[in-house]
Design a binder for these strands. Structure first.
Length: 112
DNA sequence: TGGGTGACCATAG
DNA sequence: ACTATGGCCACCC
């Protein structure tokens, strides 16, 4: 069992907790899991999120600016935006509008 | 051992 | 809006 697989599961577990219509960013997840892991590792974990058995709502994870930087890793480049818009989030030019309003922080919402 | 890369982040100019 | 740096950590040459 490789160590990084445990980290993957932790990331997926947090992402699954993101409520519908809310979003968070890679750094917040990394912080929640501990500063030992950087946000780069979260993005790296998301790279393998698409074929997880319990589905991972990867579209609810964006970068710190609310930009859909991960859209190219979906089946189609439009899927990520479509999923978010279906949850009531407005997106203009790959950027989430009212990002602070939709933002969901695991460290705060999960009451660490 | 070392360089390049990445769904990142912060700061500076 | 843009680039450049430095930090971050694991992976793959």
């Amino acid at each position: 069992m490789k160590q990084h697989e445990d980290f993957f599961q932790l990331v997926y577990q947090v992402v699954r907790l993101i409520p519908k219509g809310r979003v968070t960013n890679y750094g917040a997840i990394a912080k929640y899991l501990g500063s030992a892991r950087s946000s780069r590792m979260v993005g790296w974990a998301m790279n393998a999120a698409h074929n997880q058995k319990p589905k991972v709502p990867a579209h609810r994870v964006v970068n710190r600016n609310g930009e859909l930087t991960g859209k190219h890793h979906f089946e189609t480049p439009f899927l990520m935006q479509e999923l978010l818009e279906k949850e009531g989030i407005k997106i203009v030019k790959d950027k989430i509008q009212n990002f602070d309003k939709h933002f969901w922080s695991p460290t705060k919402e999960l009451e660490l």
